[in-house]
Write a protein that binds this DNA or RNA. Structure first.
Length: 646
DNA sequence: GCGGATCAC
DNA sequence: TATGGTGATCCGC
C-alpha cells in the first residue's frame, strides 16, 4: 500500500486527537492551532501516532455509517410530527425537575501543582508540571504554553523549553486531600468524593440549620479550605450534580459560580454550552454528535427529530435531560459494596521475550495480591490486559470456581491467558479481578440485612433527596462508613474510596445512558500471529475467530508425537518449544516453566541440556525453576515482530 | 461470561 | 528520547 507522505496529510480531527483529551478543558491558550501543530509534528511517525491515526480513520468511517443510517431514517418521514411528539416527552421530563436541593461541586485548582508549591514556594510564577513520563498536572503558567495533563513530557518540553518537570509525591497529595475532605464534611458528612481533588456536597441541610445563603456558605467553605491548607478551590452551585460540575469550571481558578434555580435560566444556560462539557460525553461522542449537527446542548433540541429516529445510537432521553439540565441530585458517600473490580497494570519499554513478559506479569500479580490483601477483597474472575507495541489493547478473561487473591494464582491464570497470544510484543501488562467478595464485610452483615430492604425501597422509588435532613437512620449508616474509613489504608493509591462514578449523575434510574454505542465489532485483529492454539480446549477456553482462517497450519503441523496421551480434548502447544502436549493447563504451565528454565540455563551456560518431558513434581519444581531464572542473566531475546493489521 | 470501546479522574 | 494507572459501564455477541 502506498504511503502518502504523512506531511500535510493531517486532518483536523487527527490534529485535534493528537492534542489530547484535556484540550478544551480550561485556560485556552491563544494559539491552540500553533500548539496543535507542534504536538502533531512531535508525534508524527511514532507508533502512538500511527495508532491514533487508525483510530481516527475508524471513527471517520463510523461517522459515515451513522450519516447513512440517518439519511435512510429520515426518508419520507414527517419530521414536524416527530418534533411534536418529542416536545411532549420534554414536558414529561420537565416535570421531573427537582430544584429543592442545593448541590455544590468543588474542584481543587491545579491540585498536584499547588501542593508542590506548598513544599517549594520558589516555584511560584514559574511554568512547571507534575508527573513522570506523562504529565499529571501543569501549573497555570505552564498551561499558557499549551502544556496539559496527559501530555508526554518530551512534547511539553517542546512547547515550553523552560518547563520544570517535577516528580509526583502522592503522599503529599493524599495528605492534603484528606485535610480538604475533612473540612468539607463539616458541611455535608455524606460528601461524595470524585477522585482526590473534587467531589460533591448537598449543603441544603447545612444552609437551613445555619440560615445561610448558598453563596455565603460556599465562600465560607472555600475560605476555610484556603485558610487551613493554603490551597484554592473552585466551586459550582446548582440544583443537581451535573450542573454543579459544569458550574465549578466557570470561574476557575479560585472562583465560584451559582446557577439560578429556575428552569428557564437553566435551559438557557445549557443552550450555549458545548456538549463536550457534559460529563459522559468524551471526544468520540463529541465527534459523532457533531456529525449530525449537535455541537451545543441547545442543538439537541434543534435536532430532536433526528435524535429521536436514531435513539438507538444516541440515547434520546439522556440527551434531552442534558438539554434541559436535569440530572441526579443524590449526593451520597462511596460504599465499599459498590466496588466492582480491583487491578494493577504497568507500562514498560516494549518486550517480546516470554521470560521478560512473565517477569512483568509476576510483578503485577504481586502488586495486585498486595492491594487485594490490604483492602480486603477476593474475586472469581481474572482478566489479563495487554497493550501491543502498536498501542492496540486487548483483554482476556477467565472465570473460576473459587476465590483468588494470591499472587501465585493470579500469576498462573495470567500466564494461562497470555500464552495463547504469545508471539507478541507488548508495552503494558495488567491483571484485574472482578466478581468480588468483600473479605471485610462479615461484621456488618447483620446491620446490612437489617437496613437492606429499607435502602432498596429508597432507591427504588425515585426519592427526592429532600429527606436528607436530620434523621436517625443515617447515624447507623454513618457507623458503617466509619468502618470503611478504617480500612482505607494510605497505600500506594489512596484513591480507594474516591471512586464514585461521575457518569452516574445522568444514569439516575431510567435512562439508557450509553450515548452512542460503537457499531458492531469493528473487526479487531487478535494480536497473536501464531496459529498454534488451534487445537481444541475445554469448551470455554477462547477460540477467537481470527482474521486469518481457522489456522490449522503451524501448530498442528509441528505436532510431534510427544506424549501419546489419549484425550485429544486437552492439548496445548508450548509457546517456548512449540511442542504439542496432551495435558491440562496445570501440566502445560509446568512444562512451560521447565522449558523456560532450560532455555535460560542453556543461554547462560552455553550448554545444551537434555529435555525431560515428563515433568517431575509441580510446585517445588516451578518455584525452583523460576527462582533460578531470576538469578541468571539472560541474553535478551530478539524482539519478535508483532505484525500489525493491514 | 467475554472482549472491545468509551469515559472520568 | 519511547504517550499513565485505576475503575466503571455499555454493547454485542
Amino acid at each position: 500500500m502506498d504511503h502518502p507522505v504523512a506531511s500535510s496529510q493531517l486532518t483536523d480531527s487527527l490534529v485535534k486527537r493528537l492534542a489530547g483529551p484535556s484540550t478544551g478543558k480550561a485556560g485556552l491558550a491563544k494559539d491552540q492551532t500553533e500548539i496543535n501543530r507542534i504536538i502533531a509534528e512531535a508525534s508524527k511517525g511514532s507508533k502512538f501516532y500511527e495508532n491514533e491515526k487508525k483510530k481516527d480513520k475508524d471513527l471517520t468511517e463510523r461517522i459515515a455509517r451513522i450519516l447513512k443510517l440517518r439519511d435512510e431514517a429520515i426518508e419520507g418521514v414527517d419530521l414536524a410530527k416527530i418534533e411534536h411528539h418529542v416536545d411532549k416527552l420534554i414536558v414529561d421530563l420537565e416535570s421531573e425537575r427537582d430544584l429543592s436541593q442545593v448541590i455544590v461541586h468543588f474542584d481543587m485548582d491545579a491540585f498536584f501543582a499547588n501542593v508542590e508549591l506548598l513544599h517549594d514556594p520558589t516555584l511560584k510564577g514559574k511554568p512547571f508540571s507534575v508527573g513522570g513520563g506523562v504529565i499529571s498536572t501543569a501549573s497555570y503558567e505552564a498551561r499558557k504554553y499549551g502544556v496539559r495533563s496527559g501530555m508526554p513530557s518530551f512534547i511539553a518540553k517542546k512547547l515550553c523549553p523552560e518547563l520544570i518537570l517535577l516528580r509526583s509525591h502522592y503522599e503529599w497529595y493524599n495528605e492534603e486531600s484528606n485535610k480538604v475532605f475533612t473540612i468539607l464534611r463539616r458541611y455535608d458528612p455524606r460528601l461524595s468524593a470524585a477522585g482526590c481533588d473534587e467531589g460533591y456536597l448537598n449543603i441544603t441541610p447545612y444552609l437551613r440549620k445555619h440560615n445561610l445563603a448558598p453563596d455565603e456558605c460556599v465562600e465560607e467553605i472555600r475560605r476555610t479550605v484556603h485558610a487551613e491548607t493554603s490551597l484554592t478551590v473552585s466551586a459550582g452551585i446548582a440544583p443537581n450534580m451535573m450542573l454543579a460540575k459544569i458550574c465549578s469550571d466557570k470561574n476557575k481558578p479560585n472562583g465560584q459560580f451559582h446557577l439560578a434555580f429556575d428552569s428557564k435560566t437553566i435551559v438557557e444556560f445549557m443552550g450555549d454550552l458545548s456538549i463536550r462539557k457534559v460529563p459522559g460525553i468524551g471526544r468520540v461522542n463529541e465527534r459523532l454528535l457533531e456529525s449530525v449537527g449537535v455541537k451545543t446542548c441547545g442543538d439537541v433540541y434543534t435536532h430532536r427529530a433526528v435524535l429521536y429516529l436514531m435513539d438507538k445510537q444516541f440515547g434520546l432521553r439522556f440527551l434531552l435531560r442534558t438539554y434541559l439540565g436535569i440530572a441526579s441530585n443524590e449526593v451520597k458517600p462511596y460504599e465499599r459494596n459498590e466496588r466492582k473490580s480491583i487491578g494493577a497494570e504497568r507500562t514498560f519499554s516494549p518486550l517480546s521475550s516470554t521470560k521478560d513478559m512473565l517477569d512483568k506479569l509476576e510483578e503485577v500479580a504481586a502488586e495486585l495480591e498486595s492491594d487485594m490483601e490490604s483492602s480486603g477483597w477476593t474475586g472469581r474472575t481474572v482478566t489479563l490486559k495487554f497493550k501491543l507495541d502498536t498501542f492496540q489493547i486487548f483483554t482476556r478473561a477467565k472465570s473460576l470456581n473459587h476465590w483468588v487473591n494470591k499472587k501465585e494464582e493470579l500469576f498462573a491464570v495470567g500466564k494461562e491467558l497470555l500464552f495463547p497470544e504469545l508471539p507478541i510484543s507488548i508495552r503494558l501488562i495488567g491483571l484485574r479481578v472482578t466478581k468480588l467478595k468483600d473479605l471485610k464485610a462479615s461484621t456488618s452483615e447483620g446491620i446490612k440485612r437489617f437496613f437492606g430492604p429499607a435502602q432498596q425501597a429508597a432507591s427504588g422509588g425515585k426519592r427526592k433527596a429532600s429527606d436528607v435532613d436530620d434523621d436517625d437512620e443515617d447515624a447507623s449508616i454513618d457507623q458503617e462508613e466509619q468502618e470503611n474509613d478504617d480500612d482505607v489504608m494510605p497505600g500506594f493509591h489512596e484513591q480507594d474510596e474516591a471512586d464514585i462514578d461521575p457518569s452516574q449523575h445522568d444514569v439516575d434510574d431510567d435512562e439508557g445512558l450509553q450515548i452512542i454505542p460503537p457499531p458492531a465489532n469493528t473487526r479487531k485483529r487478535p494480536p497473536n500471529s501464531v496459529p498454534d492454539k488451534s487445537i481444541s480446549h475445554p469448551p470455554t477456553l477462547r477460540s477467537r475467530s481470527k482474521s486469518a482462517g481457522p489456522s490449522r497450519s503451524h501448530g498442528a503441523a509441528i505436532a510431534g508425537p510427544s506424549a501419546t496421551s489419549s484425550t485429544p480434548s486437552e492439548t496445548h502447544t508450548c509457546p517456548v518449544c512449540n511442542e504439542v502436549l496432551s495435558t491440562n493447563n496445570t501440566g502445560l504451565n509446568e512444562h512451560i516453566d521447565y522449558c523456560l528454565s532450560r532455555d535460560a540455563i542453556q543461554q547462560a551456560q552455553g550448554t545444551s541440556t537434555k529435555v525431560n518431558k515428563t515433568l517431575s513434581s509441580g510446585d517445588t519444581t516451578k518455584e525452583y525453576a523460576m527462582n533460578g531464572l531470576k538469578r541468571l542473566k539472560l541474553r535478551p531475546d530478539a524482539p519478535a515482530k508483532s505484525k500489525r493489521k493491514g
